[in-house]
Simulated scan of single mutants.
Amino acid sequence: MKKEIREEFWHAFEKSPFIMIRLDDASASGAGHAEPMTAQLDKEALHTIWFFASRSNRIATGGRAMGQFASKGHDVFACLAGTLVEETDPARIDKHWSKEVEAWFPNGRNDPDLMMLRFEIDDAEVWTVEPGLFGTFKMLTGSAIRSSEMGKHAVGLV
């Protein structure tokens, strides 16, 4: 079941690669508040995601971090824990560079304010929501619903 849920999560993340991410270190600038980031995904790296950011971004210092994801259809939710580190491989930056990224960094790949962060995921929880016809009927009628009737949950997907 874990493999099925993991695949469902990555498929949903690929369709809507936006995540709220925050640093765990309370002494870091802006820690405690998450912000939306656009994830750069790589199908061969299922425990890692990347972000383009400015050096003044509140997560730019890196460190332990937590990411929260909700799919576009609100049927997949995830909480990801890991470490943010600066990605220094120019090939990785080139691989993920796009017109969308360039819109945020008009000075291009060599902009001194540009950095890429790598989020190395070491723990995750994923929930899927699929109440089905019976679960939907119970919700509409106010009947009690067991969590097992609403979807699946997996811990430690990495």
Results as ranks from 00 to 15, higher is better:
80 L>Y: 14
27 S>I: 05
154 A>M: 02
112 P>D: 10
40 Q>C: 15
1 M>G: 13
82 G>R: 04
76 V>I: 13
34 A>Y: 13
96 H>G: 08
129 V>D: 00
139 M>T: 00
135 G>A: 01
99 K>A: 14
61 T>H: 01
148 S>Q: 07
130 E>P: 00
20 M>P: 08
87 E>P: 05
31 A>C: 11
61 T>Q: 11
43 K>D: 13
107 N>E: 11
17 P>E: 12
56 S>Q: 14
104 W>C: 06
118 R>Y: 00
101 V>I: 15
120 E>Q: 09
29 S>H: 06
82 G>T: 08
49 I>S: 11
64 R>I: 02
22 R>K: 13
108 G>E: 07
17 P>G: 09
116 M>H: 04
108 G>D: 04
3 K>R: 08
33 H>C: 01
70 A>Q: 10
154 A>E: 13
125 E>C: 06
29 S>V: 09
63 G>S: 10
38 T>H: 13
86 E>Q: 13
87 E>L: 02
145 I>N: 03
13 F>M: 15
95 K>S: 05
108 G>R: 01
62 G>P: 04
57 N>P: 09
140 L>F: 01
156 G>S: 03
66 M>T: 15
151 G>T: 01
41 L>N: 07
142 G>M: 03
83 T>D: 10
51 F>Q: 09
129 V>R: 02
81 A>Q: 15
60 A>D: 08
133 L>Q: 07
40 Q>W: 09
15 K>A: 15
53 A>D: 11
150 M>V: 02
84 L>N: 08
131 P>D: 00
45 A>Y: 05
129 V>L: 12
55 R>I: 14
4 E>R: 07
122 D>E: 11
148 S>A: 14
79 C>G: 14
36 P>S: 02
128 T>Y: 04
56 S>K: 13
88 T>P: 00
59 I>S: 08
117 L>C: 08
135 G>W: 01
1 M>D: 08
144 A>T: 10
50 W>G: 09
12 A>N: 02
145 I>W: 00
83 T>S: 08
147 S>K: 05
41 L>P: 11
84 L>M: 11
8 E>H: 09
54 S>C: 07
94 D>K: 14
85 V>P: 00
44 E>Y: 02
137 F>H: 01
86 E>L: 03
27 S>V: 12
83 T>K: 13
59 I>F: 10
114 L>F: 05
50 W>H: 14
25 D>P: 09
84 L>K: 08
6 R>E: 08
45 A>C: 06
53 A>I: 10
65 A>W: 11
145 I>R: 05
112 P>I: 01
116 M>V: 11
78 A>W: 01
70 A>R: 04
124 A>S: 15
112 P>K: 03
91 A>V: 08
9 F>Y: 13
134 F>P: 00
62 G>E: 03
134 F>I: 12
32 G>L: 10
79 C>W: 03
6 R>K: 15
60 A>V: 09
55 R>S: 14
90 P>Q: 04
109 R>N: 02
156 G>C: 00
155 V>R: 03
114 L>Q: 10
55 R>A: 14
26 A>P: 05
34 A>W: 06
103 A>V: 03
130 E>F: 01
146 R>V: 00
1 M>L: 06
118 R>I: 02
36 P>K: 01
18 F>V: 14
65 A>C: 14
81 A>V: 12
78 A>P: 10
66 M>H: 12
141 T>Y: 00
31 A>F: 07
77 F>W: 12
2 K>M: 03
107 N>H: 06
10 W>E: 02
92 R>S: 12
97 W>N: 08
68 Q>I: 15
63 G>A: 03
